[in-house]
C-alpha cells in the first residue's frame, strides 16, 4: 500500500542528482528524528525518502586551515564526545548534552537539526556564536552561506530542494568562558522554551574584550544579538551589568517578535537566564 519510495544514494553527488530530479517530493533522512515525526503526523507527505544517513562524506569533525569543520552527518552524540569540540567549540558540545534523549542523540545529526529550521534547534545558537558558515552542495555546485541565513522563518528553509548541507565551518575559539543553556518544561527530553549560547574573553583589566552571544527559541530564527555584545564589550562584568545586558536582550527580542502571549514568561526569563549563564564571569 505504501506510496513512498526509499532511495539510498551512494555519494553526495548522487544524492544531489536525486534531489534535483525529485524536487520537493523528496524528504531527506539524515538522522530521521524530525522527518519520521512529521511523516507520522502527516505534516509532510513526501513520495521519496532519500537516506543520506550513511554517507561517509558527511561525517567527521576536523581542523582544516584554522577552520573547524563539522560534517553535516555528525550525530549529537559524536558532538558531545568530541575532544576537538570540547577545546574549540565547547558551547556546541554543551548543547548536545541536554539534546532530547540518548536514543535521539545517537542518530540525530547537526545537519538535520539546522535544516529542520525549528526556532528551537539547540545546535543553532552555538553555531551562530562561532559565526558558522554552512556548506551547501546543489546541482549548481557548492555554496557557503552564513548559518543565520539557513532559516527564513520557523520551519522555512532558504535551501532549494536540490541542495544539501554537507558541512559547517566554524571559527574555532578557545574562549575563557563559553556556555550553552536552555530552559525546558522538564530537565531532559525537552524542547527549549528558550536557549542561549555565549563566548567571552576578558582583558587583563577584567573588562570583556570579546563576546559572542546568540539567543534561541525566542525569535522566529535564532539570532546573534549584536547590540547585547556591543553593550557588554569593554565593560567590567558586574551583577548589575548582567541585569542591564539581560534587559537589553529582552528588548532586542521583543523588537523582533512583538508582544506575543509567551512574552509574559520569556521577557523576564531571558533576562534571568542571561544573568544565570554569565554569572560565573563576574570576577
Amino acid at each position: 500500500m505504501s506510496k513512498i519510495a526509499y532511495i539510498k544514494p551512494d555519494s553526495v553527488g548522487d544524492a544531489i542528482e536525486i534531489l534535483a530530479d525529485k524536487g520537493s517530493s523528496a524528504a531527506i533522512i539524515a538522522g530521521g528524528t524530525d522527518v519520521m515525526v512529521d511523516l507520522r503526523s502527516g505534516e509532510i507527505t513526501p513520495e521519496y525518502l532519500v537516506d543520506i544517513s550513511r554517507l561517509e562524506e558527511l561525517k567527521g569533525i576536523r581542523m582544516e586551515n584554522d577552520e573547524l569543520v563539522i560534517g553535516a552527518g555528525v550525530t549529537l552524540s559524536e558532538i558531545y564526545n568530541s575532544d576537538l569540540l570540547a577545546e574549540y567549540a565547547p558551547a556546541l558540545k554543551k548543547s548536545a548534552y541536554n539534546f532530547a534523549s540518548a536514543q535521539i542523540r545517537n542518530i540525530a545529526t547537526i545537519g538535520g537539526n539546522v535544516a529542520h529550521c525549528s526556532p528551537c534547534g539547540d545546535t543553532i545558537p552555538p553555531l551562530v556564536i562561532h559565526e558558522a558558515e554552512v556548506l551547501l552542495s546543489g546541482k549548481d555546485g557548492q555554496k557557503r552561506i552564513p548559518i543565520e541565513q539557513v532559516a527564513t522563518g520557523p520551519y522555512r528553509s532558504f535551501l532549494e530542494p536540490h541542495e544539501l548541507i554537507t558541512a559547517f565551518v566554524l571559527k574555532p575559539r578557545k574562549a575563557a568562558f563559553a556556555d550553552f543553556k536552555k530552559i525546558g518544561r522538564r530537565k531532559d527530553l525537552a524542547i527549549s522554551r528558550l536557549s542561549m549560547a555565549v563566548m567571552i574573553d576578558k582583558s587583563d583589566d577584567g573588562t570583556i574584550s570579546f563576546m559572542r552571544f546568540s539567543l534561541g527559541a525566542c525569535t522566529p530564527t535564532p539570532h546573534r544579538m549584536i547590540p547585547v555584545e556591543e553593550f557588554m564589550v569593554g565593560k567590567k562584568p558586574t551583577e548589575k551589568l548582567l541585569f542591564e545586558g539581560g534587559r537589553l536582550l529582552a528588548e532586542s527580542m521583543i523588537e523582533i517578535t512583538g508582544r506575543r502571549p509567551s512574552i509574559i514568561y520569556k521577557e523576564p526569563a531571558v533576562q534571568g537566564l542571561f544573568v544565570r549563564m554569565l554569572h560565573p564571569v563576574v570576577n
Binding site: I183, G272, L273, R276
Partner: peptide, 14 residues
C-alpha cells in the same frame, strides 16, 4: 505525610 526539599531558580522559574 511527605516532605519535599525544593530549590527554586528565582531567575528562570525552574
Amino acid at each position: 505525610c511527605h516532605m519535599a526539599q525544593v530549590e527554586v531558580d528565582v531567575l528562570t522559574g525552574e
